[in-house]
């Protein structure tokens, strides 16, 4: 819930980060989209790229690399990254399950779904399973209210969920065992 989880504010114990060649090219292309002197506009898209290349979360190293590539002050990156809820400031599991908890989904049973997932995965919303496979997040309306309850995993929406459907989704993901990102095509 809204309990305060302070971001990780140290580089200690986290791995170094640098963009892949493709990632760097994407950053450059993104920055070139804006008018002269306005390349800061690319910050959010570039943070998405960095997060996808850093196991799904933004470490201080990753944010500092973004600042470096964009020629920004570090604090300009930190203050933006910490504002938006899709940026994870803690390590996450292979899969992040963003389950909608907002009223229209609640009317269609999202409380039960979240409860079920908490029990099934043995974690509270906001936590990651011990095996590092799943991070369960209860999030606000994802714009799929007519097909709730629903969850987002990577770029994909899983809608009209039932306990059975979500169970089989979990099994499929577990079997596949490869990271999903919001930026997946």
């Amino acid at each position: 819930m809204s309990a305060r989880t302070r971001p990780i504010t140290t580089t200690e114990g986290t791995k170094p980060f640098s963009f892949s060649e493709a990632g760097l090219a994407e950053c450059k292309a993104l920055m070139a989209r804006y008018p002269e002197g306005r390349s800061k506009s690319a910050l959010i898209p570039i943070l998405h790229v960095a997060q996808a290349e850093n196991d799904g979360w933004l470490s201080v190293n990753a944010m500092d690399a973004v600042a470096h590539v964009m020629g920004l002050r570090h604090i300009e990156v930190y203050e933006v990254a910490s504002f938006y809820s899709m940026f994870n400031l803690h390590p996450v599991g292979t899969y992040v399950l963003d389950v909608c908890r907002t009223t229209p989904c609640m009317l269609r049973g999202s409380d039960d779904l979240i409860h079920h997932l908490e029990k099934k995965l043995g974690v509270h919303a906001g936590e990651t399973t011990k095996d590092g496979m799943f991070t369960l997040k209860a999030v606000e309306c994802l714009g799929s209210c007519g097909s709730g309850p629903m969850l987002q995993c990577g770029a994909g929406y899983h809608e009209d969920l039932t306990i059975e459907k979500v169970d089989s989704l979990i099994e499929q993901l577990r079997a596949r065992n490869s990271r999903t990102n919001y930026t997946d095509r």
Binding site: T102, T103, P104, E140, C141, G143, S144, C145
Partner: peptide
């Protein structure tokens, strides 16, 4: 940005 709970028409 369509984030108003209940709204999914733009999507």
């Amino acid at each position: 940005d369509e984030s108003e709970p209940g709204t999914f028409k733009d999507r």
